[in-house]
């Protein structure tokens, strides 16, 4: 059934922008977990990462992944579902590298049902959007499938789809990163509400020192350790954090037919009827 509901203002725009040739991948720009107060209060609309890459098992297909709902603990993950009030959307534009054109094709996802056991997910498109920009409506549906079916479901148009909790593949040495940020470094400690008065400066790296030092120790000399945040963020209490993954393996023919360019640029959004 085609949903007529208007999905209002875009809530989360892009976790990462990927320009993907249909055979190669280019340019990734970052990852965001809990990046604004609005999405902190609505984590299932919080896009953490977007991935687009050629299917490792089928050269005629491209894989689109949108991860939402960051920092799911092992206790929370089994109960999580997509938010039935959110439109999840991959926006695609075709053109040369560097294009800033609006989307000319969309793939949308919505969900119905309020527990993992009963939730049904519907995919819409790929199709030309009814309108471009932050207000969206659903395009024609291409099929529905049950939530969290590991084998995936192949829809009528050839898209193979999966939605469910998965381990968050993102890692980043957040804590070390904070130590070198000029506005957070420890050379400027505070007491209660009183902030330090020293001018914040970049502390720099000091290779070999991974101890981090105590808070307020004067800072300086923190080495970047790619394992520290991995330990803290994903191995603190095995099996670490999960996210909700929307995974679509899309036939390339659905992305190329009718377009002059073979290069796609992809970003992801989540939208609600209220924008909150």
């Amino acid at each position: 059934m085609r949903l007529k509901r208007i999905a209002g203002t875009t809530l989360t725009l892009v976790a990462l922008v990927t320009a993907a040739f249909l055979y190669n991948i280019h340019a990734v720009r970052g990852s965001d977990h809990q990046d604004s107060p609005t999405v902190v209060s609505r984590p299932r609309a919080d896009v953490t990462d977007v991935y687009v890459f050629p299917s490792p098992t089928d050269p005629t297909k491209v894989v689109f992944i949108m991860n939402v709902d960051p920092l799911l603990t092992p206790a929370a993950a089994p109960n999580e579902i997509l938010d039935p009030a959110v439109m999840y959307q991959f926006k695609i534009t075709h053109g040369a590298v560097g294009t800033t054109a609006a989307e000319d094709q969309v793939i949308q996802v919505s969900a119905a049902g309020t527990t993992p056991a009963v939730q049904q997910v519907t995919v819409y498109g790929p199709a030309a959007p009814n309108s471009t920009g932050t207000n969206s409506t659903f395009v024609a549906a291409s099929g529905s499938f049950a939530f969290n079916q590991s084998a995936g479901t192949t829809l009528g148009n050839g898209i193979k789809a999966f939605v469910g909790p998965r381990a968050d593949p993102f890692f980043f040495d957040l804590f070390q990163f904070f130590k070198i940020l000029p506005d957070r470094n420890f050379s400027n400690p505070r007491t209660g509400n009183t902030l330090g008065t020293a001018t914040p400066t970049f502390n720099g790296f000091n290779a070999g020192d991974t101890s981090g030092g105590a808070a307020g120790s004067g800072g300086g000399g923190y080495a970047c350790s790619t394992t520290a945040s991995q330990n803290a963020l994903t191995q603190a209490a095995p099996p670490g954090f999960d996210v909700l993954s929307i995974v679509l393996e899309v036939p390339k023919s659905l992305l190329t037919t009718g377009f002059s360019s073979q290069i796609i640029h992809v970003w992801a959004t989540t939208s609600t009827t209220t924008g909150t």
Binding site: F175, Q176, F178, G213
Partner: peptide, 10 residues
């Protein structure tokens, strides 16, 4: 409790 250096998040 793991007290990872710089862990303000947990």
């Amino acid at each position: 409790a793991l007290k990872h250096s710089g862990d303000m998040l947990s």
